[in-house]
Design a protein around this nucleic acid. Structure first.
Ligand SMILES: [Zn+2]
Ligand SMILES: [Zn+2]
Ligand SMILES: [Zn+2]
Ligand SMILES: [Zn+2]
Ligand SMILES: [Zn+2]
Ligand SMILES: [Zn+2]
Length: 722
DNA sequence: GAGTTTGAAACT
DNA sequence: CAGTTTCAAACTC
């Protein structure tokens, strides 16, 4: 990587006072899939895996270069000829602290010193199915999965000059994706023409991806686990923990690193003792070699060899090469084994370690029957603001940011620039004045414009009534029924006002606020789900305002120009299309990302290992989403879908297998294919039954309803007569 | 204008 | 509180 290229990258970051070095020291080999496992060829043990969700996982540790491992269980991985898989993760390296002894100390880790974070890659898919491969192959009939989506179109980003690391998404239609690397050019038949990437579909898929169970979300204000309601596993399995998983770096369970930004992702456990004092690259390598030799002799079985396999590192979706995943401070004991077995071979993991506990597991779901298990990628996101700040990306390029904060920050920046320029040249007062001039905003502009009501049931004494809401009596234009909102009913009206104020003391105030004398936002934000905040149902949109971080809307498109918020607060990402395009424009392969990909292409296939998805937090079993079986029961009891009911009666035994992960594969049922599933789905006519009776319970993504290219994640996988 | 969809408000 | 129901407006035809 030349210096020029680094400069090219940095040139994007216009606000960067310090050039950001973006220097991958290693590359992620990509797997070229040539053998497809399906049907009888699939090892039976795979059937017990809980997830086919993740395409692959970035794997790395201190001693190995990162690589991608594909998830054999993943249909997309099985059925697509080739793709370049983008790593979800950065890489973490600790440089030797002491060059003489080659030692790095725990102190260094704790202080986040001497490390280097590197990785870049991107996912490019080939949009062609193998002719003779089933597109869908459910592992059991109750746990059909959706097609994998392309939601790893992203690059991990970090710099040596900041402690940021996290995902940065690249917009799929970026020129970056359309630039072929030399290797790709030389083997055009092998590589998907990137220009053919169906960008809208990818975007669609991203916004509704069912792959991930959940997403760790964190920004300056909060951290939480955003569950993916589209995820089948999440909907159908009670393997939830009540703890939030990874996320904001917690010293207690971080790998010795107190990082305030986000969790590491996809760190791998190679049965090593937790990295700590007196570990060196050398002795870790030695230890690994030793363990590898042991592995060849001794079947990995933690019950037999508990001392060897009970340590792991990392957080978030950590990879595991042992049979269980434990925090660095815990060990396998009877209880954890019991937990393991109680969950059909899946551990409840990704527990957050409470500060007062040192004995909880976290990491990946693992399968008891497999000795070699790798995690799925985690692809955590980083809050737009924090990311932008850390990367010195103009805030306007970020997503999911509160516009008011953007204003504020940019004003700050302007002030600072102004101060700087004044120091050297005090000739800039006009700018100063314009910048600080108060803006006169009529807040009433943002109130709803309706000035009469047609209430029928609320007596115009609930906030449902626009008149009441605005503190007005109903007027002669109102066509309300049994109106109580008038001067002849003052007692009851007053009471109603008090009640409304009790519920929300702010009820009669304007729902909008003005920040920094410049930016108006909705105080509470909206919660839109189905309209992308582009209909007047949305209070933000209706007021002509962009959504903000206050909003909890899903798939919001009502965002600042140039921004793309994928999934509400859940998946905020920074889009760096400009950067990528600039890279691509300046020369054919001047970007490190492209270089990385090209390097990957030249690597031979790597061994494919089993991948698992991560468990998730926040939901208790009691409060879990209802299972598809339950939804199904509800539906069939209403006689709404005849064919499925029929099927249900034909195979009653299947329905008893609720929430079971390790159901033995039924060859007969295994024949269910995509076509059948689509048929089932198409038998469902959304217009014949209301959302309220069906769709809302079904976690159905509106945006995909009419997209023939989108395979709905949640569809029944009952076998029906075709 | 009738019927459906929607998300805030209300309720539990 | 979070999940569910109610409600009137927004929307569709
Ligand atoms: Zn009214
Ligand atoms: Zn009225
Ligand atoms: Zn009225
Ligand atoms: Zn909205
Ligand atoms: Zn909003
Ligand atoms: Zn929104």
């Amino acid at each position: 990587m030349s210096i020029n290229n680094q400069q090219s990258f940095c040139s994007l970051l216009e606000l960067s006072p310090v050039p950001i070095n973006f220097t991958p020291s290693c590359f992620m080999p990509v797997t070229k899939i040539t053998n497809f496992l399906h049907g009888d060829n699939r090892p039976s043990t795979l059937n017990q895996l809980p997830s086919q969700n993740n395409i692959g996982s970035a794997v790395f540790d201190k001693t190995e270069d990162p690589k991608i491992n594909f998830n054999k269980n993943n249909h997309f991985a099985q059925n697509h000829n080739l793709y370049i898989l983008g790593a979800s993760s950065h890489n973490l390296y600790f440089q030797p602290h002491n060059p003489e002894t080659n030692d790095f100390s725990q102190q260094d880790e704790m202080q986040h010193l001497n490390h280097k974070l590197d990785s870049v890659s991107i996912l490019v898919k080939k949009d062609t199915l193998q002719d003779n491969v089933q597109q869908q192959e459910p592992f059991d009939t109750e746990q059909e999965v959706g097609m994998p989506k392309y939601n790893n179109i992203c690059t991990p980003t970090h710099s040596n000059n900041s402690d940021l690391f996290g995902m940065v998404q690249i917009q799929p239609d970026s020129k970056y994706l359309q630039t072929l690397t030399p290797t790709q050019k030389n083997n055009p038949s092998q590589y998907s023409p990137k220009s053919n990437i169906p960008t809208p579909n990818i975007i669609q898929a991203i916004s509704s991806a069912s792959d991930k169970m959940s997403q760790c979300v964190f920004n300056e204000q909060q951290q939480f686990q955003q569950l993916n309601n589209n995820n089948n596993y999440l909907q159908n399995n009670p393997i939830y923990s009540n703890y939030t998983t990874f996320g904001l770096g917690k010293q207690e369970y971080f790998q010795g690193v107190n990082n305030p930004i986000n969790g590491f992702s996809s760190s791998q456990c190679n049965n090593l003792q937790p990295f700590g004092k007196n570990k060196t690259h050398e002795n870790i390598k030695e230890e690994m070699k030793k363990r590898q030799e042991q592995q060849n002799q001794i079947p990995i079985n933690y019950q037999q060899n508990p001392n060897q396999y009970h340590k792991m590192n990392g957080q978030s979706t950590s990879s595991i090469n042992s049979q269980a995943s434990f925090s660095s401070t815990s060990s396998i004991n009877e209880q954890t084994i019991q937990n393991h077995n109680n969950n059909n071979g899946c551990l409840k993991i990704n527990y957050r370690l409470p500060s007062n506990s040192s004995n909880q597991m976290h990491g990946m779901v693992v399968n008891s029957l497999n000795s070699s298990i790798l995690a799925g990628s985690s692809s955590h996101s980083v809050g737009g603001i924090y990311t932008a700040n850390k990367l010195n990306i103009p805030l306007s390029m970020t997503t999911s940011v509160n516009n008011a904060i953007v204003e504020e920050k940019e004003r700050d920046l302007n002030d600072r620039n102004l101060q700087n320029s004044k120091d050297s040249n005090s000739d800039d007062e006009a700018y100063d004045n314009s910048n600080k001039q108060a803006v006169n905003i009529d807040m009433q502009e943002f109130a709803r414009k309706v000035d009469f009501c047609k209430c029928k049931k609320s007596k115009c004494l609930k906030l449902y009534c626009e008149c009441f809401l605005r503190g007005n009596y109903c007027n002669d234009q109102c066509i309300c029924t049994d109106c109580g909102n008038n001067d002849k009913n003052l007692d009851e009206r007053e009471k109603a006002i008090e009640e409304a104020k009790t519920r929300n003391s702010d009820a009669f105030n304007l729902k909008f606020q003005i920040l920094n004398n410049a930016t108006v936002t909705h105080k509470k934000g909206c919660h839109c789900k189905r309209t992308h905040c582009l209909k007047k149902y949305c209070e933000c949109y209706n007021a002509g305002l962009k959504c903000t971080n206050n909003c909890k809307c899903e798939e919001c498109d009502n965002i600042q120009d140039g921004l793309k918020m994928i999934n509400g607060g859940g998946n905020s990402r920074v889009i760096m299309q400009i950067k990528a395009d600039e890279d691509c424009n300046s020369s054919e392969i001047n970007s490190q990302m492209l270089q990385s990909i090209d390097y990957q292409l030249q690597q031979g296939p790597t061994e494919r290992k089993i991948s698992m998805c991560s468990s998730n937090g926040t939901s208790s079993i009691q409060n879990r989403k209802r299972t598809r079986s339950e939804v199904f029961d509800q539906l069939t009891s209403k006689n709404e879908i005849q064919s499925q009911q029929q099927t249900d009666q034909l195979e009653p035994e299947i329905r008893k297998k609720k929430n079971s992960v390790g159901i033995k594969q039924n060859q007969q049922n295994n024949q269910v294919n995509t076509a059948t599933q689509i048929k089932i789905k198409s038998s469902y006519q959304p217009n014949q039954t209301s959302y309220n009776s069906f769709e809302q319970n079904f976690v159905y993504q509106t945006s995909n309803k009419n997209n023939p290219n989108f395979q709905q994640a949640t569809s029944f996988s009952k076998k029906i007569q075709s």
